[in-house]
Amino acid sequence: MSSSNLQRALIQIWAFVFKNWIITKRNVFTLFEILFWPVVGLFSVGLLTVFLQLDADMSGFILIGVISMSVIQVCQIDVAYALLYDLWSKSIKHTFIAPVHSFQLILGSWLIGVFRSFLVFLLLSIFSVFAFGFDFLRPGIGPLVLFLLGLFLVSVLIGMSVCILVLLFGYKAEVAAWSLVSLMVLICGVYYPISILPFPLPEIAQAIPLTFFLEYFRSFYGFESGYRNLLGWGFGLSGLYLLIEMVAFKAVLHHARRTGVLIKLSE
């Protein structure tokens, strides 16, 4: 790839960062997304652990779950916004008549999601130290970075699923942007270990990378996992699903060009 082509490809990715950033700046609701809900979530669950008189490790188990879900929610919604903003503005056809690749659309939106959700993580970690004495840095910088990377990867997978559903079902699918994360809460052991889930949910949880990333990080707080090579499973599954979703995204885009969904969503 020549340098001008590379520059062109990078600016096309940057376009989606620019779009999401401008809309984030303008929209009061996005402040709620990155400040209000995550902070309210952390404090209400944190106070619940105080009321239940849980020990520090048990509180940590739950707070890891709360903060992780806030990070994922903020990051995945930015990926989903790649199409949702266009859907709401009825401008989707202008994005897809431009010579952009689907990976550029996803990558650009994901980058701004990583930035916003990292801010959320910083904020919640600081609050959790001062309010509940929970130290996110106890495992060290390396494990923390790997854990966050895992969360960001899970986020892109959820956000892409929303985009795929939007291209398939249009407006009917926008609810997925908020509900897919709730499914993760139920299945992946966010507030409890997956061993307490009824059949077949533990088996399903083992197919979701978030389960392994949570178990990996909790292992530094004394919660031994029944699985080996947690990061390998987490990143391996993430890579596999990312590949599948990239192919699926291209396929549904092709399908949308065949069925006229891009036109219908722009009217």
Binding site: A9, Q12, A15, K19, R26, D86, S89, V100
Partner: peptide
């Protein structure tokens, strides 16, 4: 129809980037 909350200039910059203008 274009992105509602983006201004004229921002919309043009956004689509300009999509066409690789730097």
């Amino acid at each position: 129809n274009f992105l509602w909350s983006l201004s004229v200039r921002e919309n043009l910059h956004f689509y300009g980037m999509l066409y690789g203008l730097t």
